[in-house]
Amino acid sequence: MDINVDIIFKIAAIGIIIAVLAQVLIRAGREDQAMMTALAGIIVVLMIIIEMVSSFFDTVKTLFEL
């Protein structure tokens, strides 16, 4: 999962989209929905990051025989 490079761009894209969406929603007067989308974005990115970190730690564990 962590080998391909496009994960970095995926996370950056999510961040940018969430930032833009939050601005648009705030301008439209829906602050609560802006907060919701911000939370959703963070949850999605956290899922990806946690899965990457766990596979990274497994690789290090097997590599260094820790």
């Binding site: 080998i3 970095i8 950056a12 940018i16 969430i18 601005q23 963070i42 990051i49 990457m52 990274f56």
Partner: peptide, 27 residues
């Protein structure tokens, strides 16, 4: 990318940094 994201959303810069570090190590 982390620099771009640093203004609006501080935490995303950290996520992008972490992802880059892990991808580079996996290479």
């Amino acid at each position: 990318l982390a620099g771009i994201l640093k203004e609006q959303k501080k935490e995303y810069a950290l996520y992008v940094g972490l992802a880059t570090v892990i991808v580079i190590f996996s290479m």
